[in-house]
Design a protein around this nucleic acid. Structure first.
Ligand SMILES: NC(=O)c1ccc[n+]([C@@H]2O[C@H](COP(=O)([O-])OP(=O)(O)OC[C@H]3O[C@@H](n4cnc5c(N)ncnc54)[C@H](O)[C@@H]3O)[C@@H](O)[C@H]2O)c1
Ligand SMILES: NC(=O)c1ccc[n+]([C@@H]2O[C@H](COP(=O)([O-])OP(=O)(O)OC[C@H]3O[C@@H](n4cnc5c(N)ncnc54)[C@H](O)[C@@H]3O)[C@@H](O)[C@H]2O)c1
Lengths: 221, 221
DNA sequence: TCCTTATCGATATTTATTTATCGATATCAT
DNA sequence: ATGATATCGATAAATAAATATCGATAAGGA
């Protein structure tokens, strides 16, 4: 039964999955404004995707709407929170308490997404043994012990690129099963560990490229 | 002629565009190691994409390889740098000198990507009038003047979600043509302004979802 | 009550992206 | 020099995603 519900989740396409948080954000806004129902047309007008695409995305979640009225806001919100894992909090740790690592550690928003950053780790004695945003930074040597003790499965990697691979190796040894990698390099891990690359350079490439086209189009008008 | 070269750039698919920085990073590593040539097979072994996909991606850049030897590393590196805009530096400004904004402001890596963050802006008197990472934080009232003076076209938006729309409006008024939005809300801008949404919630959704599947698969084995 | 209309949900079509095939060619070993 | 092989580049096929179509239905007004 639990494997059934999971295999149905599995087949949500990644593009859809990436849009679900946007629907969730909008829904929670609408809910707090007291809206009872919402249609794909209305979501479309606000978020800019086509109503057809939104209807298809929501179909993947199993949400059921009603003709003419659309979806029940509260119900859809719960469905999204469930699928997105916002209801069951997951612990995570950070390795690399630098500019980015500390920013993420201090980010309040994660608790809305069911992510609880427990602590950070670093090699720099200037960083370790201190509290940042109320959370402790430990020496990297404590990583394995704490991760195993607390059964932490998610690791956020924010060390300089040169140390990314060795840090990933430490995380794997510590029992981490999912690495959110902010270093702009590929890291290798065993098959049973997953890596989510968060590469700002990729986004910047898209931005910069679109901007180039925008300005060149304007020059030719 | 310039419109020709641009329209050919325009048709690079976004998935390809997002992979180009990864190729670039690998190429620059190989180049500094003294490698003269590199094949798609070799890139494939390192980055994990199929050689076929890599060959197709590189075809979009106009790079030409040689049978048996592959591509000239230096040549390919230059082509990628050109397409990715790493050679001509673009100025940018940040609005919202908080945790994330300051981390981005202090990020050295951007200079490799041709992005030069000139200054930041904030409303908080605790932040304004100071230097962070050697760069000034000005009051938001200075935004329009400085942006127009320096002809800055790229704005990085790192204010709390509640202020994202009004900040975007200020940026548009200041002549900003591309907004890199880190707030997890949709912002509306005129047609001639582009927005690149950087939504960590989307990435986290993918990560968390894959992790769910991974653990449920392991339970069922 | 009946008609009009907005919406959903299922299915079909189109478009985009990835993956496969295959001939041509350059390199290397014999 | 010859043959084996790795690779590219062009083209084709397969897969994935976005978009369109259309019948069914629920709401609201005539
Ligand atoms: N700062 C940004 O805005 C930004 C943006 C995109 C990507 N990144 C990437 O994120 C990573 C971190 O960037 P940053 O700006 O925070 O750098 P940073 O130098 O400010 O922080 C890196 C931290 O990692 C620690 N560290 C170094 N080696 C370590 C090791 N082996 N084990 C544990 N800790 C170690 C350092 O002591 C430091 O505290 C880099 O890979 C960078 O490319 C940063
Ligand atoms: N910190 C993170 O790791 C992180 C991660 C993902 C997304 N974000 C998003 O990035 C944004 C910033 O996050 P943060 O953690 O840096 O928040 P923060 O509170 O640390 O910083 C926000 C900054 O914006 C300034 N500000 C507020 N209103 C402003 C206005 N109208 N004009 C100019 N400046 C204004 C504040 O004074 C503050 O300095 C938020 O939207 C957040 O959701 C942050």
């Amino acid at each position: 039964m639990s494997s059934d519900s999971n295999s149905s989740i599995q087949q949500i396409p990644e593009p859809t999955l990436r849009r679900l948080p946007l629907y969730h954000q909008l829904l929670s806004e609408k809910h707090s404004e007291g809206a009872k129902n919402i249609s794909c047309t209305e979501i479309s007008n606000i978020l800019g995707f086509t109503a057809i695409q939104i209807r298809k995305d929501l179909a993947y979640t199993g949400a059921v709407g009603r003709s003419k009225t659309g979806y029940n806001v509260k119900e859809l919100l719960y469905i999204l929170e469930d699928i997105l894992g916002y209801t069951k909090t997951k612990d995570a740790l950070i390795v690399g308490a630098g500019n980015l690592g500390l920013a993420l550690m201090g980010y309040d928003g994660f608790k809305n997404y069911g992510l609880n950053i427990v602590a950070a780790f670093d090699t720099d004695p200037q960083k370790t043994g201190k509290l940042f945003h109320g959370k402790a930074v430990f020496d990297i040597s404590e990583l394995e012990k704490l991760a195993k003790e607390k059964g932490i499965k998610i690791g956020i990697l924010t060390v300089p690129s040169a140390f990314a691979q060795e840090t990933a190796d430490l995380m794997v040894n510590a029992g981490i099963k999912a690495i959110w990698n902010f270093a702009p390099v590929k890291i290798n891990v065993p098959d049973d560990v997953l890596v989510q690359h968060e590469n700002l350079a990729s986004s910047l490439a898209v931005l910069s490229h679109k901007l180039d086209n925008l300005t060149s189009v304007q020059r030719n008008e």
